[in-house]
Nucleic acid binder design. Structure first.
Lengths: 148, 148
DNA sequence: CGGAAAGGTTAACCTTGTCAAATATTCAGG
DNA sequence: CCTGAATATTTGACAAGGTTAACCTTTCCG
């Protein structure tokens, strides 16, 4: 795939460590924001996926890189709380499309708005620096996605 | 806790989304790298903490922001596999210091080396850009930590 | 038509994580 | 020195997230 070249660049491991630390902060904030609404992180993630419209179980599993049977349980719990509904797909009677209810999408928006992670840390940066950061992250992400 | 100020800056939510995406990529890579060595993410995290030396249970829990009783189980499983040992603290007989064994630290180094996450995405950036990125991340992280 | 393939669920199982209670040790006053 | 409060760890009970294997139902295709 790619050569196991170790980096002559001492900067790379440093940046990796920073990313790791930031991932930790972000993850923690996300869990806390979800917990404040009595949601687990996984439930919040699924709810977040449905922001743009209904999605079949299978696709949820693929997007989150986990087994479909796992999604069954998470959706069960969301449904039990009235945040989500399973509806039959008119095209294919095997598939069930998951849709957020009113309550569900309200919860998602709230959670999203409260995700002030980078509203805090980003406050340390000027407008121009934020622009720089966005571009750098965007390029890394594009690169990462092309790898799949 | 802090005011519910909405940002006049349209860039902030954009950067937050990018961070979220990158966090997802990173997290997934980390889990996979750990799984490749038959470790769970949590086990890998604890093992990684011990890289710089022994650490009492309590401190591990604090660092990972979880209950001490949780660490008991994780260390149990690491110890059962010979990756880690509990040793008594000579200063205070209540505390147990967790130390990695030879095997354990070998595993950590391996895992760390294989964490090519940002070796890949970072390849998209030039040396100077990497430097920029490091500084931006560093400042965000400093800011985030001062918030606690 | 008949069998393979795909979507979803169920059941059994392990790990993470929480909380509450128990044990052992240390520490601070009186 | 003695007692009680505080600290470090463990245990047990429990919920959620995840995996695998087995099982329907429905669709697809030769």
């Amino acid at each position: 795939m790619h050569e196991e070249q170790e980096q002559p660049d001492p900067l790379t491991p440093e940046v990796v460590d920073l990313m790791a630390a930031l991932v930790g902060v972000f993850h923690k904030e996300y869990e806390e924001a979800a917990a404040a609404r009595s949601l687990t992180g996984a439930q919040a993630k699924v709810l977040g996926l449905l922001r743009r419209g209904p999605m079949p179980m299978r696709q949820i599993a693929q997007t989150l890189s986990c087994e479909p049977s796992n999604i069954t349980g998470i959706v069960d719990r969301l449904e039990a709380r009235g945040l989500v509904e399973r509806q039959p797909d008119p095209e294919d009677r095997r598939v069930k499309r998951v849709v957020t209810t009113e309550t569900g999408s309200a919860a998602t928006s709230e959670l999203r708005a409260s995700l002030n992670f980078a509203r805090e840390p980003l406050a340390a940066l000027s407008g121009e620096e934020r622009l720089q950061l966005r571009d750098l992250l965007q390029r890394m992400l594009d690169h990462a996605r092309r790898q799949d």
